[in-house]
Computed example of a mutant assay.
Amino acid sequence: MKKLKKLVISAGLILSMSAFTLNGTTEAATTHKVQSGETFWKIAVKYGVPVKSLLTANHKTGSLLYPGENLVIPNSSVTAAEKDLMARLVHAEAKGEPYAGKVAVATVILNRVASPDFPNTISGVIYDKENGHYAFTPVMNGAIKQPADAASKKAVNEALAFRGQGSGSLFFYNPKTAVSKWVATRQVTVKIGNHVFAK
């Protein structure tokens, strides 16, 4: 009987481990039991998946949820390492900025990944270098190597939940410190704190 228990536990652990290392690229799908007061938005932010994907995975067309209902959380297309890299960039770029500004910085990264004008991976966007210049100052000065704070990590998950919505910002800058005159010619989408976001 003990051998059978060990075999069952071992098999369960192997299945659990394989779910988290599937292709080594994405986080595994899981389920979530809806608690009173939760919304699709809150659940999407918690897991860092787009609201649209969460709705689709659960064959939902509206926002109605019932406490106790089990939802399928779809696989994330963004790895834990990519989330960490984004959070470190957000932390370095938006330190001292309002939380909404942190989310907007993370959204710029995701918008660039989706744009044909930029690299199509998160690391490609973050480490992008043109004409000898990095796209993001924290990559150049090494600030990206600092660990992210909790707010920056949450901002990344919120940007992922918001993915595919919004005004399509591809750039952000501080008009007081920006040296590029070109970026000021872009269409402004929103101003948050000291940053101007544009496309």
Results as ranks from 00 to 15, higher is better:
18 S>K: 12
18 S>G: 07
18 S>C: 11
19 A>F: 13
19 A>Y: 07
21 T>D: 02
22 L>M: 07
22 L>E: 00
23 N>A: 12
24 G>A: 08
25 T>I: 11
26 T>I: 12
29 A>Q: 11
29 A>S: 15
30 T>N: 02
31 T>Q: 14
31 T>R: 12
31 T>W: 14
32 H>T: 02
33 K>M: 10
34 V>L: 04
34 V>R: 03
35 Q>H: 06
36 S>A: 13
36 S>C: 03
37 G>M: 01
37 G>H: 00
37 G>A: 01
38 E>I: 00
38 E>G: 01
39 T>V: 08
39 T>L: 10
40 F>H: 10
40 F>L: 15
40 F>M: 15
41 W>T: 13
41 W>F: 09
41 W>I: 08
42 K>F: 07
42 K>A: 13
43 I>N: 14
43 I>C: 12
44 A>P: 14
44 A>M: 09
44 A>T: 11
45 V>S: 05
46 K>D: 12
47 Y>L: 11
48 G>N: 11
48 G>V: 08
48 G>S: 14
48 G>C: 10
49 V>R: 15
50 P>V: 10
50 P>S: 09
50 P>Y: 08
50 P>E: 14
51 V>L: 14
51 V>I: 13
52 K>S: 15
53 S>R: 14
55 L>K: 15
55 L>Y: 14
58 N>F: 11
59 H>I: 03
61 T>A: 05
62 G>S: 14
64 L>P: 12
64 L>T: 12
65 L>T: 04
67 P>W: 00
69 E>L: 04
71 L>A: 05
71 L>T: 02
73 I>W: 08
73 I>G: 11
73 I>M: 03
74 P>F: 04
74 P>M: 14
76 S>H: 02
77 S>P: 04
81 A>R: 12
82 E>F: 00
82 E>Q: 14
84 D>V: 10
85 L>S: 09
86 M>N: 12
86 M>I: 10
88 R>I: 06
89 L>E: 09
90 V>R: 00
91 H>W: 02
91 H>R: 03
91 H>I: 07
92 A>C: 05
92 A>K: 03
94 A>G: 02
94 A>R: 03
95 K>Y: 08
96 G>A: 08
96 G>D: 11
97 E>H: 10
97 E>N: 06
97 E>V: 00
97 E>A: 11
99 Y>P: 09
101 G>L: 05
102 K>M: 09
103 V>D: 04
104 A>G: 06
105 V>N: 04
107 T>S: 07
107 T>E: 07
